[in-house]
Design a protein around this nucleic acid. Sequence first.
RNA 1: GGCGCGUUCGUCUAAUGGUUUAGGACGCUGGCCUCUCACGCCGGUAAUAGGGGUUCGACUCCCCUACGCGCUACCA
Length: 473
Amino acid sequence: MRFAPSPTGNLHAGNVRTALLNWIFAKQQNGVLILRIEDTDQVRHVIGSEEGIATDLNWLGIEWSEGPDVGGEFGPYRQSDRLKIHEEYAERLLREGSAYKCYCSEEELQMEREKALANRLPPRYNGKCRDLSAEEEKKKISEEIKPVLRFKVREGEVSFVDLIKGEISWKLDNIGDFVILRSNGMPSYNFAVVIDDALMKISHVIRGEGHVSNTPRQLLIYEALGFKIPKFAHTPTILNKEKKTLSKRHGALSIKRYREEGYIPDALVNYLSLLSWSSESGDDILSRERIVDEFSFSRMSSSSAVFDDDKLLWMNGQYIRALKSEDLLNLSLPILENSGYTTQNLESTAKILEAVKGNLTKMSDLPQYVELFYKSEVEPDGAAERELIEKEESKQVFNNFINGVEKYNEISADDFKEIMKQVQNDTGIKGKNLWMPVRIALTGQSHGPELPMLIEFFGKEEVVSRIKKVMGS
RNA sequence: GGCGCGUUCGUCUAAUGGUUUAGGACGCUGGCCUCUCACGCCGGUAAUAGGGGUUCGACUCCCCUACGCGCUACCA
């Protein structure tokens, strides 16, 4: 298996899904995953994107055993470093008569194309230079035109069985002689992939559906060179909310963004695995082990899927809630410190996290939920809150509550519930009128985590002092 | 234009000719959980693109149309 991204920007959900599928399948088959960088287009090459790709994959736990960084017996793993190899095979095709030099200029070709289009004909290369006589060729050479190498497409048809889409076939008269070596000496994509995949002994080519139409050209090259043809699996496209195919611009659905916003890698992996694939069990929350174990191409749908951020968010929340408190703590510490909160006391930090765990769908939400735990002074949030705690009824609640609390040395969550029951009995006040004054006195806000949990966190003294403060004002 | 691929609730999907009043999940929504925001639990909403065939029977097979996407590059 191999994942072969081009270094033209950050990884997005589509790229990464392909990488993930390769990883899953390699893992399941006890196979080897190769990372190969396809950088034959220097114009679109973006500096630093190779590192970015590695960072994203590492973060998601997609590991490869051969690649430009780790080496391996089938290297080099950067396509631009394989030029000699590509040239060698191009020459062989030329020698064997499967390819020929073409001297047509871009302007010429462009004109031909427009003419064909105007006549409502397929805009294909017309094979002009296919059978150039020795004389004509000599003339072209003397004109110092740098030729490209074109592959001579045979007659008949080609077909293959896609692991996801089933049998696909083409009549070859629909395909024009295509370029395998550009005039600058660089191989074209369709040529280089075949050489590299064959030489790296790739057994399964798992790639995006956009490549389906490239496959007949590649099959022809495999054929001409006598290479063993790998199995192909073309994965459906992932679309954004506007149902457009993902682009590298605008950072849309970029993996980097998910990493920075504190998504759990496992959650993203899980969500991505469920795009165009489903477990036979019907379960949604699946561990990596289960995905690897249960995956099969036959359960993959062949239509494109829209990436749904809402569902990802939900799933991420599920993973956060399932986190062991130790792991949650480790994940949270840097975020809290970044927001300026002191986390010296690990025990109490863990308690805070436990209290807000249920509210989180992504870790970057954490600061807004923990704020009230770090405040030492509390002021009622708004007019409505202020009004409520100044009501006569509320003062009754406070008095009674303090009396109740004083009977304890420490108050646990259960003690608190007992006390509240007692207050309700004594005052006859219940429901909102009973609980809200306490909440506001303690936190200043009408929203927040469960009160018993809060009480336990603050402890008796803090609780009493906060209530007294409100009563005095 | 040609060729290829695709089309089940808003979204991800299940059902690979009969077990189906088309199932689950997200979202939305109603209720419950002594207060709120959440969590959790229980319920509701909503789909086979359209038209022809084949068949006793079609989401499932075939054809046509529509729509979307890809390739048709000296991009990958």
